[in-house]
């Protein structure tokens, strides 16, 4: 027995509410983030990831209040991402009770930001979020490019090289989302996960595409992920965290039950 693989429910939040954009469908309201977090924590979630998708700067104050409220009730690790651009942003979130912050666009704009953040706050709280998309032409070997701004802007940067560089800068963990699979419910991009997991020493959180419990197991067994993240399968009551853990345990994966 040893370290358990983690199951992480993800809360995408807009103006203080949990929402989930299902591809090609309107964004659905999935509740109050404090209540939802508490419910997942009580149900045995190993961590909570809170992604702020609020567009306007003014509404960001709501996010800090929400993080503070979650942290007062949830005694498992809490990662906060979305709009983290400065060392002050990180300090604000850590002081509000976040344990880790996820950095995406700001890292691409200035990779040294990740180094400064890791030096100031420690690698243990710096998660680099990577949105990757397949770009290899037919006949080429597998290749992925990273995107910013929630997957809208291409960067021309190779995903594997990027992740290596981020770890060298001090990233303590990688949150890896497949743009091809996000919202499709067809499972993680297992080849992407495996390639990234083997390229670096730090833990990888697989994200994007979970539609059933076997997808979570595949992420660990074939994708070599250290943690698996999902949103909609938990938010709308399709599966509970315990069902997910029992399924993974039945597939021989060590989990915290």
């Amino acid at each position: 027995m040893g370290l358990a693989k983690r199951i992480i429910p993800c809360l995408d939040c807009d103006k203080g509410r949990v929402v989930k954009g299902v591809k090609f469908v309107d964004i659905r309201d999935a509740g109050d983030p404090v209540e939802v977090s508490k419910r997942y924590c009580d149900a045995g979630a190993d961590e909570i990831t809170f992604l702020d998708i609020t567009a306007s700067h003014e509404d960001r104050a709501t996010t800090v209040d929400t993080v503070r409220a979650i942290a007062g009730q949830v005694f498992i690790p809490l990662t906060v991402g979305g709009g983290i651009r400065t060392l002050d942003d990180i300090r604000t979130m850590l002081n509000a009770g976040a344990d880790k912050v996820a950095i995406n666009t700001a890292a691409v704009n200035n990779p040294e930001f990740v180094r400064e953040a890791a030096e100031r706050f420690g690698s243990q709280c710096i998660v680099v979020a990577v949105d990757a998309k397949r770009v290899a032409q037919e006949g080429e070997s597998l290749k992925w490019e990273i995107f910013t701004h929630g997957g809208r802007n291409p960067t021309g940067i190779d995903a594997i090289e990027w992740v290596k560089r981020m770890v060298e800068c001090g990233a303590g963990e990688i949150l890896l989302t497949s743009m091809d699979r996000d919202g499709t419910r067809t499972g993680f991009d297992l080849e992407l996960n495996k390639a990234v997991s083997q390229a670096v020493q730090v833990p990888i959180i697989a994200s994007g595409g979970v539609g059933n419990l076997e997808h979570l197991a595949e992420g660990v067994l074939q994708g070599e992920a250290d943690a698996v993240l999902a949103a909609s399968i938990f938010h709308f009551g399709e599966f509970t965290i315990q069902e997910a853990k029992q399924h993974m345990a039945a597939r021989g994966i060590e989990v915290r039950i």
Binding site: G2, L3, K5, R6, D46, G172, Q201, P203, D226
Partner: peptide
């Protein structure tokens, strides 16, 4: 260390991050 392995020879990630017994 950079070459940490468990009893079965499986590579272990560093940092040691998560829930352990």
């Amino acid at each position: 260390g950079d070459t940490l392995r468990d009893a079965n020879g499986q590579r272990l990630k560093v940092p040691h991050m998560g829930w352990n017994e």
